[in-house]
Design a protein around this nucleic acid. Sequence first.
DNA 1: ATCATTGTGATTGGATGCAATGACGTCTAT
DNA 2: ATAGACGTCATTGCATCCAATCACAATGAT
Lengths: 227, 227
Amino acid sequence: MSTARQLAPATRDGSASRRVAAGIREAIAHGELPPGSRLRQEEIAERFGASRVPVREALKELEIEGLVTLVANSGAWVSQLTMRECEEVYQTRERLEPLLLHYSAPHLSADDLDAMDALARAMAETEDVVEFLRLDREFHMLSYSGGETLMLGDLVRRLWNTTQQYRRAYTMLVDVHAQRIVHDEHRHIVATLRDGDVEGAAHTVEGHIRRTRRMLAAHPEIFTPTG
Amino acid sequence: MSTARQLAPATRDGSASRRVAAGIREAIAHGELPPGSRLRQEEIAERFGASRVPVREALKELEIEGLVTLVANSGAWVSQLTMRECEEVYQTRERLEPLLLHYSAPHLSADDLDAMDALARAMAETEDVVEFLRLDREFHMLSYSGGETLMLGDLVRRLWNTTQQYRRAYTMLVDVHAQRIVHDEHRHIVATLRDGDVEGAAHTVEGHIRRTRRMLAAHPEIFTPTG
DNA sequence: ATCATTGTGATTGGATGCAATGACGTCTAT
DNA sequence: ATAGACGTCATTGCATCCAATCACAATGAT
């Protein structure tokens, strides 16, 4: 009956809920679904050409990840972070990302480092906030791509996802060109990694995150009322 | 028709999947479901007096937590950790638990510290491995109970859950009385917390976890073939 | 006029049913 | 005898269906 269902023709490969979750995740990341947005099961189901069952599983998945807040018999909303909570995520990142870099660094190829360098350069030149954020994320994720970890990699990705909104809000607030120090840090990370100085790179990453945390803390207006 | 269903009489408060997840979690923690066990949806559904829908949501939840491994069109198994993966979890704990203690410590009451002391003493006296593990967990969780965190507390609890099996296997392997150093560390944690030396306590916790990690690494026979 | 109350509609939670996939055993051909 | 192909069965994935709960508005009482 439904035409939308025909577009997703019975793949039955167990990927429906995963596809829905990925779609919602992306919509949140892109700012299409800002924090506090209501998520109606039926609406989502229609959008992705699925029934409500995989949608519910996707929402569950996103809830555990912290991206979505579920209330029984009431509904689902895109999670909002207070400033305090955002700082918690950043402090967690400060501890985990240096560790993840230790896992990843030994397996990064020269090509990977070149690509990181290119991303850092592109960031310094772009004017577009969205592009800036995309490149930044890609830079760091590439630096972590060598680590074949059980959960650490996924965990860090989740932490990035939950704070993406506030990073965007902040970046849109300040001048992109005022972020010169970001580029210096990125170049320094690549340089130390080239030298095989993993500890140094990890230290820079930690400082990089800490500095960003403090920048965010200086702009409480980004956050929800109860900051 | 099913009698089991009558025992869970239509609470409809959205807690079915959560109850199922909690039940499976506990069964895994208690060793009733060892790593590698197959989890059949229908079987679980009957056991908890629910239909397969909440069971699937529970399995999804446990998969994200890392306790269960889901394979599309095939089934669900209790996750197995290699030694390398277990070490990753422990390294993650080494970084996160000191941070969590920083959140918690300022809100711990004198009563909490007394209770921790009592738990540490009880641990030193028990002969039972299961009791030993229960007390150990309670001791640490109590030390973290003051932290009103968004995700850090849950995260740490999850990390404990995924490695519980291997802690038990290790504890059963060695003599309980050989763990004197554990008790010293626990007393030291309580003492430093009483002094208000959070940094010192955090440092001890970090060392405590690191030492345990190395103890586990010395017993590769605990782990699954691909260690 | 304000507050409590009741009823209606929208939306979620959970149960059942059916199609599809995968595993396993059996049969056949070389 | 062994390897490959086929068919059956158990089990999962998803859609549909029904009941319970909640939000909100309209009504009535103080």
